[in-house]
Structure formats: C-alpha cells, structure tokens
Design a protein around this nucleic acid. Sequence first.
DNA 1: AGTGACGAATGCGAGAATGC
DNA 2: GCATTCTCGCATTCGTCACT
Length: 345
Amino acid sequence: MARLKKSDLIGLALQAIADGGWVIELLTKGNEHPARFKMSRAGVEHHVRLYIWNLSHGGKSRSEHEFRIQITGIEQFEPEPDGRTLILGWGEEFGVFAAFDVQHRLGALGASPSIQITDATLKSAAEDGGAAQDKGDGERAVAVRPGRLGRYVENQEAIHAGDLSALLGDEPEDEPTDLEKSLIDLSANDLKREFGTPGEADLRADVIAQIDSLLGALDESRPAEPGQIGHNLPPEAIDEDVGVAPAIEEAANGIRDELAKPEPDAAEVGKAGAKLAWAAHLLDMAKAEGAKLIEKGKDLAREYAAKALWGAAGTIGVVFKEEIVALLHRVAEAVLRWLQHVSIF
DNA sequence: AGTGACGAATGCGAGAATGC
DNA sequence: GCATTCTCGCATTCGTCACT
C-alpha cells in the first residue's frame, strides 16, 4: 500500500485544515514530528500538536477489517499545553483520517504499540463525512473526511464524547472562496518575491487606500461607548460578546505595517489578506443564514461572525456592516493583485 | 555507496468474549 | 468448563530514506 513520508503526512493534514479556510502557521520544520502549528480563522485561533502516521492493515494473520497505526518514534504522547493534540492516521485507500483520543493515550507506550480502527468506520466516514467507533472504556476512535478535519479540531472533545453533529451536519463544507484559496496559495513562504518593479508602488498604495477606507468604516460603525478591545483575540474570547472587528483591524493594520516596509513579508500580507477574505465570507454567510445562527450555530467562528454582523446588542447598523463586507472584499482583492505582481513563479 | 534511523509489515501471545 | 474467536499490544524483520 502507498506509504507517505512524514513530511507528506503532515502536509496533507495541514492542507486539509487549510482547505477549510484556516490560515496555518507551521511552528516546526516540515518533517519534525510531532508537528506543531497555529490555525486561525476570523479571530479564532488554536495551537495544535499533530501526531500522524500512515494507517495500515492489521496484517495477514489479522481480521480483514482491522486497520491500525503503529506508534513509533515517540515514548509517549505529550498534550499541547493550552491547545489541541491530534493523533491521526491517514488511510490512503479510504481517503479519510483516523483520529484517536489523546486523553486515553497519555500513559507510557510500549516498544511499538498500535491503535486499531475498523474498515467499516473508515468507509462510513468516507461516505458521511465522519464516523465513530466505540473502543470500550469510554474511548471512541473517529474517522473523518479531509474536508471536515478543521471541524474535528474545533469540536474534538465533543466528537470523542460521541457527539458527531459537527461532522455530520448538512451544512456545506467550509470551502474557502476562490479569493481565499488564491491568497492562501500566494502566502507560501517558499515563493520568491520581487519588489520595486514598475507598477508595484501603485498596487501597494491601492491596498493601503482600501485598508484606510475599511478602518474608517469600522470606526464609524463603532457604538458610542465601544469598550476598548485588546490586541490579539485569544480563543477563549469567543465566548465574550466582542464582535469580529478587532480581528479585522489587527489583520488590516498588519498588512499596512508590512507594506510600509521596503521589502514586506509577502507571506504575512497574504495570510492577513486571507483572514480578511474569510471574515467577509463568514459575514456573507451569516447574512444569508440570519439570526438563527446566533441561537443554533455550531460553528463558533460563524456564530461569532453572525453576532458581529447583526449586532448582538442591537447597536450596530446593518447598512454599515454590509458596507464593511464590501470593503473587506476590496482589500482582499487589492492584496491579491499586489501578491500576484510581486510573486515569481 | 555505506550506514544508521525510522516506520511499516508481519507474526505471536495474552486476555476477554462468545458459543457449545 | 472448554474450545474457539476476536481484540489488542508487543517484538522482530525488513524496506525506505536521509545523512555523510
């Protein structure tokens, strides 16, 4: 069976999460295992530790239905402090990830322990998006299609507790728009860039002008007594009713700061642009789905955006917010034009 | 090209579950 | 109670890859 290299496995998982609209910042080298990374989207941010192996069949002498990962190269699993820990197996022939609950695997490991999952669970996930298998002792092995891996990360605890609604929901996959995909693609760190070429200054000035309009519109739509919002928006802040504006402002200011430099970090600009495009996407979805999301939304990021758009306290005018959505699109498009101009393929 | 490290394939054994 | 089956974990072997 095809076997992927460690760097490919890590890349596959990161790509699956990125395809869900998350901006990924890898904190370890490409083949370092476990991999650690930061995933962020519209003000929501998770630090993640990723353990991943190929999923293989149990062997000739084993049940034909048995698949497993074999834990090699580590003495024990170490959970990510204040973050998420993923134990994944990539099942190439099923096109799904197997995911195991780190809370049940925190003890010392043997010389070459393995963790099993059945083909029925893997097939079921390939069809339905996700599936769980009771392994006894309260442990559930989960299988998840790549397009929903981001949801798995967000709802890991509930899913291993048996609530698969986040994986099985009828909502469309959180597919990024073409604009977001293009920005994410052009945010690759290994792309060469060239600055100061003819026309580049004009494109750069256009981005800054659009950002100024956006920040101005945000200022105007701010309630009379806004309450000062902190710098970064930590994940736990989702529960607070602070709106999506701080995350937008942070991304916009980040772009402006970079573009003030003679040689900006284009990858950072691209990632921030993707964040703005995603915010616009969320706000569009929230507008379409209306206030019901505020009550029922399972996707925290979308709920968060819905609150921001509709104004949880009724203090923010929709007309202003629609204008802001349009401005977010314009900034992201301007960033894309600039990135396309400075990137060398 | 040689070497070592790593990871997957394979086989085996222990223990639990099930059926007679 | 015993035999069989199944699940799970461990050990060994072997192939692949990276490094020198």
